[in-house]
Amino acid sequence: MTQEISIKKNSNGKIGAVMVLGAGVAGIQASLDLADMGYKVYLVENKPSIGGAMAQLDKTFPTNDCAMCLLSPKLVDTARHPNIEIITNADLHKLDGEAGNFTAIIDKRPRYIDEEKCTGCGTCTNNCPVRNIAHFEDVDELGKVHLSQEDQQVIEQILAGHESERAAVISVLQDINARYRYLPEDILRHTAKALDIPLSRVYSIATFYNSFSLVPRGKYVVRVCMGTACHVKGGYQILQALERMLKIASGGTTEDNLFSLEEVRCLGCCGLAPVITVNEDLYGSVKQAKLPKILERYQDESVVAESTVGGTE
């Protein structure tokens, strides 16, 4: 669609309409200022939406202010301003005349949707078959996937176990996580290829869920329950005591790779608060003073074999 904006001169030679090209934060602010001054503003943007780079930033330099918090009120004001007409998904084709009296020809690309009815729910983007086609040139550029023969076998077996599932990615990651106790990078790359989904999506899932880790975990994962009941009964003190004893921060792994320390949202054993688990063993009514004894069990290999069943300490 080609839209023609033609502006006619008035008596003093200048008239009240402006065209702003580019709806980044600069263009948006300029449009708002001009519109407030009473000019009719045509805000033209090449992308399907306004906001530009700032909408993708977390913080702005140098004040570390939240980018979206600054930008989003401006976006809303722009959209609602009676003097501003937003023309997105469009390019400037031709410009004639001079400031105050010009004719612009704008090519507007089709959207294939009814803008009036769209609620912006995003379902179409999620389901778009074109976007979801995997492209693997990047992977090759970043380095080939290196899998040992054993890894190759393991992953093939895991993938085969979920062949019939319509959305296997989470189950596959869970199996990898159970096998390796974390998600090794090369295996994730392989998984993306095998499931024919972009690596970025695998990564977004791997980093979203609490139970996945991208770095190797220790032999024993100590999880401290951070549920409400555990909190009021001193769960946080337990976590800190463990941090001191293991000399690692929550989320870390000891140098000898024996222990990893993690927080868990709630283990659902609130009646026994505060609760910790070491791998599969669950300990209830834990006290700080008892922690060294619990850890000791796992430091000595021979003892561990006998005490795989947890108990209230």
Binding site: G268, C269, G271, L272, V275, L282, Y283, G284, V309, G310, G311, T312
Partner: peptide, 11 residues
Amino acid sequence: GTCGISAGARK
């Protein structure tokens, strides 16, 4: 249940 086992029901 999970609570019972962790309190020592298996023993």
